[in-house]
Design a protein around this nucleic acid. Structure first.
Lengths: 190, 190
DNA sequence: TAATTTGCCTAAAGGTGTTAGGCAAATGCA
DNA sequence: TGCATTTGCCTAACACCTTTAGGCAAATTA
């Protein structure tokens, strides 16, 4: 029998494509096997199981996102950088909804440590340099930005903003204005 | 044979409890049947299937959340109301992580229209009255607040903020400061 | 009390996840 | 080049979940 040329990488790649097509939680070992026209059990030489597959997709997504983010932030500063970074998340989620969902997977400690997760926080921190926030405010701001990016993107993707005016493009742009204004005028505790 | 006294409501209630215990995506018709010590097929007289069960849990969660939110906002204004509303989401997500995840389920148009979804936007709008934002800024602000609340809660719950100082309690409180400051000083487009 | 409705059951078929063990293709080595 | 070993995909089997069909008994109603 001819061999299909499977490998962990190819399986995860296929899983990521599948996730974007049918949703992350529909990604199944069986579906990936079908995609390679191979029996399900064959995948178990390359993966330990479903958990492994999903984790692999999550790590792939986190790495792709971090690469794009690094690229977007390079050579920019201030609001320009802020907007560029935010757009990376939003655009990625639109292009790759399944991968984006995967990136939200709660990882086990080991893969989490080896993930690109740290790079994301680092990139946000880099942007904040332009706003000169002292610690611990910088950390608070990193978390706030992460919350807004993720929250907005996931609500928009989930249809939370649909069927209502004004359109989300406008809101997105005004959100960037608001975040920039907030960072330039970061409040003291009250 | 004695009857177990099943009903759609009781099944959904049990499903919600199960969701909080083992996670929303582990909620299964079989598990609910086990909980009532009843055969799986028996549930199909009360539910059309898994989709129905999950939708029911989502609607329950949205309604509970809206009730709590309405209660929290009543008799408060300004930053006080803002914080109270935000805390409702955060506390609910902590007490009922499975239900909170269910509330994020993308609903079909029909149940979505019948859901408490609209009340949530309405409550946020009520809070914004104290900040006197003209339209369409008010809508932008509603969306921004929704993004921050949901984003923060879901990142915190997903462990995105863990293993790092300062603690999230502090960040949460500074996030409230930041949002209040932002709303009192809402920027014009640039 | 008899008729009807309702509630839970058994049975069965199809899909997914996972493990165990086998044969053949690819690879490494004499 | 021929043989031994490794590797890759297979079949078989079991467990669990979903859903549909049809049956018997308990509850309800007349």
């Amino acid at each position: 029998m001819a061999r299909a040329g499977l490998s962990t990488e190819r399986l995860i790649q296929a899983g990521a494509e599948l996730a974007d097509e049918v949703g992350f939680d529909q990604v199944t070992v069986s579906a990936v096997a079908r995609r390679f026209d191979v029996k399900v059990a064959s995948l178990y030489s390359h993966l330990r199981g479903t958990h492994d597959l999903r984790t692999g997709i999550a790590l792939l997504a986190l790495a792709e996102l971090a690469d794009r983010a690094a690229d977007a932030v390079a050579g920019r500063a201030g609001k320009d950088a802020l907007t560029a970074l935010a757009n990376v998340y939003r655009d990625y989620a639109r292009e790759h909804p399944g991968r984006y969902a995967a990136a939200q997977l709660r990882l086990d400690p080991a893969p989490a440590a080896a993930s690109a997760g740290g790079r994301h926080a680092q990139l946000t921190r880099a942007i904040l340099r332009g706003y000169h926030l002292p610690e611990p405010d910088q950390t608070h701001a990193v978390r706030l930005l992460g919350s807004v990016f993720h929250g907005y993107v996931s609500l928009e993707l989930g249809g939370g903003f649909s069927h209502s005016a004004p359109d989300t493009e406008e809101t997105w742009s005004r959100t960037m204005d608001a975040l920039d204004a907030l960072l330039r005028n970061w409040p003291h505790p009250r």
